[in-house]
Design a protein around this nucleic acid. Structure first.
Length: 117
DNA sequence: TTTCTTACA
DNA sequence: TGTAAGTA
């Protein structure tokens, strides 16, 4: 199928589909006229990419993790060092949460202080 | 009409 | 990401 059909079947814009390819997430063949040609598997690949993206993973992490996903559900077939990569992601998220909690505490403090208005 | 690349908002 | 331009 061409990019337009893949776009309709996945709900992802052609712009993004080309971007995914540029990021090494989605493979595409080429027709003699230069048009990208996709196989049926591309539909599930795009769905997996979306799930992973919604988990907040960067395209770089997805590139490493995608080849180790199972055909059906987006999730994994624990090969290579996927666990380490994902564990590291969890750690950076925890760090962000800590920082946000500090921000929250500071702002909440401003609100509990009697205003001079 | 659809797709392609490049580039700007 | 959307969109414009100029093609094939």
């Amino acid at each position: 199928m061409l990019i337009g059909e893949l776009s309709r079947r996945t709900g992802v814009s052609t712009r993004l589909l080309r971007y995914y390819e540029e990021q090494g997430l989605l493979a595409a063949g080429r027709d003699p006229n230069g048009y990208r040609r996709y196989g049926d598997g591309s539909v599930v690949t795009v769905r997996k990419i979306r799930v992973l993206l919604e988990a907040g993973l960067s395209t770089e992490v997805i590139r490493q993790v995608l080849p180790c996903t199972k055909d059906d559900g987006p999730e994994f077939d624990w090969c290579s060092g996927i666990r380490d990569i994902l564990d590291r992601e969890l750690a950076v998220i925890d760090d962000r949460i800590e920082g946000l909690q500090r921000n929250r505490g500071a702002i909440a403090g401003f609100l509990t202080r009697p205003g001079e208005h």
